[in-house]
Simulated scan of single mutants.
Amino acid sequence: MNIQRMSVFGTDNIGVYIFSNNKYTLVPRNLDKQAKEIIKENLNTEIIEFTIADSFLIGIFLAGNNNCIVMPRIAKEEEFRLIKEVAKDVRVEKVDVRATALGNVILANDKAALVYPEFSDAEVKILKEVLEVEEIKKGTIAQVIVVGSAGVVTSKGGLVHIDATESEVKELGQLFGTKIEVGTVNFGNALVRSGMVANDNGVLVGTSTTGPEILRMQRAFGE
């Protein structure tokens, strides 16, 4: 599994700005050419330049997997139409749930999802249907309720908050059907999604991510 360091707009918090699955990577408009080349080379996807509610914080507002890109209710209709027109190989849905920072509150791969514990049962049902996952659970990771911020998971593996317990790691591995490791990004940040973007093809991390942190990621996402 190839892991490469990069920055976005001069910051290492690349996960705040980028969403990716195996087919598409959504990035802010005006992202520099070098960053887009790194994304194409490592994630091997089509790149779509985009905003949500006129914001560049794509990674905070979007969630999803290879079945569906899930947009918050605050997304503008023209943004919704644009993605549906361009991302033809995956479903795009706008969901009417209370939370709008969906990337912070949904952790998903193609098999399962772990979501914010304060979602209602009706909201969880909506998310299960749009994500087309076998199982969805409400929960926390290391007592962190913004579970989308506390982990990154693909079909190849997952990395979660360094303080996740052994039992949590085991349960997450069973839920997502893949191996899970604990770790940090960007020299000790336990909210790993903020500095990390991954799909089944590769992993991108902020430039201040250390060698030992990358070793943990290689254990998590390696073949």
Rank of each mutant, 00 (worst) to 15 (best):
K170E: 08
S149T: 09
L102Y: 01
G148F: 10
V16K: 04
F9T: 03
A35D: 11
V92C: 09
E78W: 11
V97R: 02
V97S: 05
E77L: 03
E93Q: 15
T11D: 08
A198M: 14
K137M: 09
A220L: 05
D54W: 01
N22K: 14
L172R: 15
E129G: 07
I141R: 11
S194C: 12
L114N: 07
T100A: 02
K40S: 10
M6W: 01
N30V: 05
E135N: 05
V153I: 08
D12S: 11
F19K: 06
V105W: 06
Q4F: 01
G148E: 11
G139D: 06
I39H: 09
G222S: 14
A142K: 10
V133W: 00
I39E: 13
T51F: 02
V70S: 04
M71Y: 01
D12F: 04
V90C: 06
S149N: 13
A113I: 06
D54F: 12
D32H: 11
Q143D: 10
K137Y: 01
C68G: 15
L102I: 10
V124P: 07
T178D: 06
N21C: 03
V144E: 04
S20T: 06
V90K: 11
K33F: 07
V146W: 06
Y116E: 07
F221G: 12
R219D: 13
G206I: 00
E118I: 12
N199F: 12
L107I: 01
L172K: 11
G59D: 01
V192T: 03
N30E: 05
L57T: 07
M71S: 06
E129S: 12
K88G: 12
E78R: 10
V205G: 10
A113C: 07
L26D: 03
E168S: 01
I18S: 09
A122M: 04
V86S: 13
V197L: 09
V205N: 00
R5C: 15
G103M: 02
K40W: 14
F119G: 07
V146S: 15
P72I: 02
G188V: 09
K137E: 11
E132F: 09
I47K: 05
V144G: 13
L159T: 03
K137P: 14
G59N: 01
I14Q: 03
G15S: 04
G222M: 06
N2H: 08
P117C: 03
Q4A: 03
G202C: 06
K170A: 13
L114H: 00
Q34R: 15
A63N: 03
S167A: 13
V130G: 07
V95A: 05
V16E: 01
N109D: 02
I58W: 14
L175Y: 03
